[in-house]
Amino acid sequence: MGRYLSIFLTFTRACLVRDMTFRTNFVIECLTSLGWMSMNLAFYLLVFQFTPEIGKGTGWTREPFFAFVATGLIINSIVQALFMPSAEELTEMVRTGGLDAVLVQPLDAQFLLSMHRVDFSSFANGLVGAGLLGWAVMRMDHAPPAAAWLLYPLLILCGVAILYSLVIMLAAATILLGRNQSLYDFWFYITNFSRYPAEIYAGPWGGLLRALCTFVIPILLVVNVPARVITQPLEGRGWALVGLAVGAALLALVVSRLVFQAALVKYRSASS
């Protein structure tokens, strides 16, 4: 474990050195990311000019909803910074045979493939998310209990684990198919569902979608559960969701690991 941490720090250091080599690019990436996030926040502020709550009786009034958005920003910034750059590179590595070099190294291939690039500019959104969370929580009607603060980081990790597992399964599909650009688009479409409170999926079709995104691809648990824990009182249903999120995260990690290992056995390598 210590060795993997040390290797990860070496990757991180190398990526930082690289980012500092292309400083202007780094600054532009930060600004683009912050600009996109600001537009989203402005849009939500606009929505709350017309309604006090997203869905009647759901508890998603302005401040809790911004805590929800902040939670999404934190989770997504971790995934975008730590895993997505490597995953995006994987398609090219499979197509050109660059994956060969990874497979001959005495290290877990999943670790190497999913964590060898770190995008520091994505952390900018996470920092703003943390600030937004603080602002929203201070303005809420009730302060979150100590248990909520303890559970919150754990559930953030669960959310990251679920998204990471999804990335790994898409990476496995890339290895099997040889090229998989559209499936990464699929990742962005599916993760869009995690950006809104689960309560908006109502009615027969909404209910079906909600069940699908909770139990089959547990994308709705990613942001909803930690955001609910920090913004709403912890009751019976809240605890059940916590259990579900932890279980889903563990199961997703195991399943994605198995799928990835199976894909590596089928790896064909590119012609030289």
Binding site: A14, V17, R18, T21, F22, G97, G98, A101, V104
Partner: peptide, 19 residues
């Protein structure tokens, strides 16, 4: 096993490109 051998491919770059 992987600690005891090495593979060099003339048409592939294994070093970090930008560093």
């Amino acid at each position: 096993f992987r600690r005891r051998f090495a593979l060099v491919m003339g048409q592939r770059n294994q070093l970090w490109w930008d560093l």
